[in-house]
Amino acid sequence: MLEARLEQANLLKKVVDAIKDLVQDCNFDCNDSGVALQAMDNSHVALVSMMLKAESFSPFRCDRNIALGINLTSLMKVLRCAQNEDILTLKAEDAPDVVNLVFESSESDRLSEYDIKLMDIDQEHLGIPETEYAATITMPSAEFQRICRDLMALSESVAIEATKDGVKFSCSGDIGNGAVTLRSHTNVEKPDLNVEIALSEPVALTFSLKYLVNFCKASGLSSTVKLCLSNEVPLLVEYGLASNSYLRFYLAPKIGD
């Protein structure tokens, strides 16, 4: 059986809220290392990969591998019934028909319980190769969100170019062009505002802004975001969570004909 207690229901609420517009039905794969999810969006150009490690829960118990097939809209309806500060416990039997969610208020004796019916989801699982990326950019998640939203006002696509001088986000559209360039930057007092660019070789790739703006819905999960790029492979956008858990998005690049 599965029994996993999260100190803050808000974490799962934010994760599901961030991905529910990209993927609708998906399996939450539970085993002794934690709860994982991998799903492609409908158009198959983006991939969501979430890992909530066992250490993110206390306690965490999962005796055998269980796939919980859940409709994210349904899950979101139930998660909205939780207060942000509530403690959340996920429970399921070994061959479950439902997943049980229990919300406990840390301040009162209120206890709410919900069951969500599970679905059989036949999902292909993709192997993501370990990649030494040519450029890894760590930056404030709010800054990345702002850049994507700003450039989307002008264009459908953004070119991301990382060089030793910095990282340039540029676009061109019907009304004109736009570009934002960031250089490495260290803020001793507010390290969350740092911009770090680790580069082994220059990279230039183009991506659909619609997807990037969608990924940025995860900005509330982490103050920083990591962008990993190599020529001709999907972009990795990673939001790190406590205890080495993460929410990752992969996006196939746009390639000129």
Partner: peptide, 14 residues
């Protein structure tokens, strides 16, 4: 003039 290949082009079936 852009082509966007599916993500399965890059990541194979596990």
């Amino acid at each position: 003039p852009f082509h966007q290949a599916p993500i399965t082009t890059y990541f194979c079936d596990a």
